[in-house]
């Protein structure tokens, strides 16, 4: 017989999570292209910390760009991780949800911290 999960999944939440992952994937696709193109262009003259700070530091544009990038990752990755844990482990959905929420908090905190630090390192 089909096993019932300990935490029944909510149809509305599941569909919204799916949509959130798809929309964040669209944002990520754009961000990754810009990010990779920037890396390729930036390393042409050799890579140094000073060069990175010189480009990203103090720039509101890069702060917003990496802020959006981090937020898209914060939405996208934990939803995917949730599906993987559900398929590949015996953990209950309650535990999986908790783990993925923690992953989202960690990704958001660390990512935004880096983006803000880089912004604060440069400029006048």
């Amino acid at each position: 017989m089909i096993e019932e999960t300990a935490v029944p999944s909510n149809p509305q939440t599941e569909a919204r999570l799916w949509l959130a992952q798809r929309v964040s994937a669209m944002v990520l696709a754009l961000c990754i292209v810009v990010h990779l193109a920037t890396i390729i262009m930036a390393v042409q003259g050799g890579l140094s910390a000073a060069e990175i700070v010189g480009r990203v530091g103090g720039s509101e544009v890069w702060l917003v760009f990496y802020g959006v990038f981090v937020l898209a990752i914060t939405v996208h990755a934990p939803i995917g991780l949730r599906a993987i844990l559900n398929e590949m482990t015996k953990l209950s959905m309650g535990r999986i949800n908790l783990l993925c929420f923690l992953a989202a908090v960690m990704l958001g905190y660390l990512g935004l911290k880096v983006a803000i630090r880089f912004y604060m390192l440069g400029g006048a």
């Binding site: 999960t5 029944p8 999944s9 149809p11 509305q12 599941e14 569909a15 999570l17 599906a83 398929e87």
Partner: peptide, 13 residues
Amino acid sequence: RLKAVSGTGGCQA
């Protein structure tokens, strides 16, 4: 039916 097919075991999987 849409409710029935939406979930961890539903179409999104």
